[in-house]
Design a protein around this nucleic acid. Structure first.
Lengths: 331, 331
DNA sequence: CTTAGCACTCGCTGTATTCGAGTGCTAACG
DNA sequence: CGTTAGCACTCGAATACAGCGAGTGCTAAG
């Protein structure tokens, strides 16, 4: 597509711009390693690269800035995910060495770790409830007419739902209902829950089950953890952009969709408008799934400006997703 | 402290500044309702108010801007919490009418509600685990040597902890351990957990208990829900301030401390540096506890610039905290 | 004590000017 | 023929400066 010299020039522009955030001119490129020609030649080549859509000029007499297409070329042709600093490697190791406790806490902390590593915002979408099977169910009375239905899933997620009853409860009824539900549900996924036969269930159990199924149907979001949003305030200088991005990050379903769409691609990058979420048009996302033995549990990602340090971000996401998967397979 | 005229002038300055964010001059104050004197007189009075620390001039020949002390006076002498728009009242009612489901979800959604009502960021600190008593305990096997300890607390919070064992588990042992733990823990608070006698417990139960107690000791944060952070990007024009505030909001323990410190004061306001959290020096917080029958379960708050709409914010916080308390008392 | 009047301050706005980084083009060069 | 030195040109950013006007503090009169 691009001859070697154009590629080298484009790479130089991208690297320089990522570093300085200033439009880069022909002179600077000519000095770059890997480019052995004069600035005049660079100028000619850059004019071509602009015509082909890899670069743009913010205005006449300014340097060039990469377009999304330019970044895309850079990412596609670069030599792998780069390496982490030794200090960072150690940080990751230490983190996972002492990461214990419950799943939610771990994911939350991991998002902070990833954000610290990359200096961008980090996003983690937790295990989808759809695929997990029920491992244990119990009804716990809370007050005279309310109980809490607690379901432990195979992915260590604890699903709980308050259920209101029309009649007063007593311990015995609760216990039998618990047993009924356990017999019915254990081993099933929540997804197939509505298809189950509710015959020969105690009225109590039926009510509880209905409650669970109903709530299930609502847009109960998969758990999302976002860390390091403060760093978005530095990544962009336009306050408006910052606001748009933050607002989007708060709408969890958008984030979930974003990461879910990319989950099948393994470690991958979506640059600018590629991911289709309009308010994040000025952002790129580096994503990777994490999971245990091929079973994907969720995905982690880094969200930064299109002008992000792709090699480092890729390296961080790769390492963390792998370690996280390993960590989860242990517990 | 301040004679009636100074008070009126100060109030006018504060109200005007909150509305426009521009330093307000003597002419504008003179036109304000409640001030019946000429701009010259206003100037004299404002000079005094400045000397006494209620106002400052950003620079000579600019209008006056309230200091924290100025806002404090305004808040202390203003006529109660103001009123919500009918549309907003309705919004609150509708929200709580269909707010069901689990506690965490409700609190999370409530933070969004409050943020929408006020156009500032909203913070909710959930029920402290310290005071809640254990209502039910169960050990659920996850894999050969790990189990999940699930404890349902009286405030509907579900506390869960993964526990590693050195020996393989079997269902019978798990069941008896569950029973042991239930006998020991039900009715107790988590706080008194370390003081309990662990005699005549099965080894399994003892291990589980140790795991619970240990994790308990770590800085397991009380649940914090922050909504509407994007609005902070609009509240301040300095990107640096935005970054500081966002960063602080991510450190949940700071937020928890902030709200906890104010919980005893009922509906109250902390202006600027009053709350002692340095990075939030340019913010004010409006807080109220929420709870059931005098028992405080947590607090909700609104975080905005010191130049915030105090009456409306107070009204919103008051209404939402009350409704939230009522909602929780029902379930 | 209040207020009209006034000189003064000083940031903001708009304009003119310069500066320089960077370009595209042309012509010379190997 | 591709490369490059040279150069005219463009245009934003920076600087300087004047005028404006909002706002002040002070003074003197009511």
């Amino acid at each position: 597509m691009l001859d070697e010299r154009k590629a080298a020039i484009l790479r130089a522009v991208v690297e320089e711009y990522i570093e300085t955030a200033d439009p880069v001119g022909s002179a600077r490129v000519a000095q770059a390693a890997g480019v052995q020609v004069s600035s005049a030649t660079v100028r000619n080549e850059m004019a071509v690269l602009e015509r082909e859509g890899y670069l743009v000029q913010p205005h006449t007499s300014a340097g060039r800035v990469p377009t999304d297409k330019g970044y895309r070329f850079f990412v596609d042709t670069m030599a792998g995910p780069g390496h982490l600093q030794p200090a960072q490697r150690q940080q990751v190791t230490q983190f996972f060495a002492k990461a214990h406790g419950q799943l939610e806490q771990t994911l939350h902390d991991t998002s902070k770790l990833l954000s610290n590593l990359t200096d961008y915002a980090a996003v983690i979408v937790g295990p989808s409830h759809e695929v997990a099977t029920v491992r244990s169910v119990q009804l716990v009375g809370l007050s005279a007419r309310t109980a809490l239905l607690v379901a432990v899933l195979s992915n260590a997620v604890v699903e709980k739902r308050t259920v209101d009853f029309t009649d007063d409860l007593d311990d015995g009824a609760l216990a039998t209902a618990s047993a009924d539900l356990a017999r019915l549900l254990v081993g099933r996924t929540l997804a197939e829950l509505p298809t189950l036969a509710t015959d020969n269930l105690s009225p109590l159990a039926a009510t509880a089950l209905a409650g669970l199924a109903g709530a299930r149907h609502e847009d109960e979001p998969d758990h999302v953890f976002v860390g390091g949003v403060a760093r978005m305030a530095q990544a962009f200088d336009a306050v408006e952009t910052v606001r748009d991005v933050l607002r989007t990050l708060e709408q969890q379903y958008l984030v979930v969709g974003l990461l879910r769409d990319l989950i099948d691609r393994g470690l991958s990058v979506a640059i600018g408008v590629e991911h289709g979420v309009q308010p994040l048009a000025e952002c790129s996302v580096v994503v990777a799934p994490f999971g245990v033995d091929g079973e994907q549990l969720g995905s982690i990602g880094v969200l930064g400006p299109t002008r992000m340090h792709y090699p480092e971000a890729l390296a961080a996401v790769a390492v963390v997703s792998q370690q996280l998967g390993r960590r989860l397979s242990e517990s």
